[in-house]
Amino acid sequence: MQHIISLLVENHQGVLARIAGLFSGRGYNLESLTVGVTMDPTVSRITLVCGGDDVIIEQIKKQLNKLIDVIKVIDLTSQLAVDRELALVKINAKPNQRGEIFQVADVFRAKILDVGMNNMVLEITGTSSKINDALAILQPYSIQEVARSGLVAMERGKKFK
């Protein structure tokens, strides 16, 4: 099962390598990873999405906790959490197709970032499954490129940190 794990880590060199190395070295499945600084400039938040059965997920959390540079490990899967991903999508759009694409974009509350002669760039924000749905709908227009941010997530209600 897919798990969303949020980490608070020391914001210094090499921390990302430790996390990535843990996953590659122990053969864990890492689906996405995002990193950014928090309000405290000495702390970064890493949000990662990983897969595996309960035993593997438990091991992943324990191994992450063992890293000295990891301050806190929070599994957001079983908690009430909000999560979002952002995707930039460049699609072929001939002038006569633009209207249809605007409609689709409207349905997914996507933003049009750029319109060119034969293509346009959309920004879609939402849960990963919403982005998957949007991409599926846009597929017939021939997608040229997709850049996805990976998931960021946060516990609802009370704040950790």
Binding site: Q13, G14, A17, R18, G21, I68
Partner: peptide, 14 residues
């Protein structure tokens, strides 16, 4: 060496 030794140490520093 910090990169090389990362998986075989408890922790390391440069």
């Amino acid at each position: 060496i910090v990169g090389i030794s990362r998986p075989v140490t408890k922790h390391n520093y440069l």
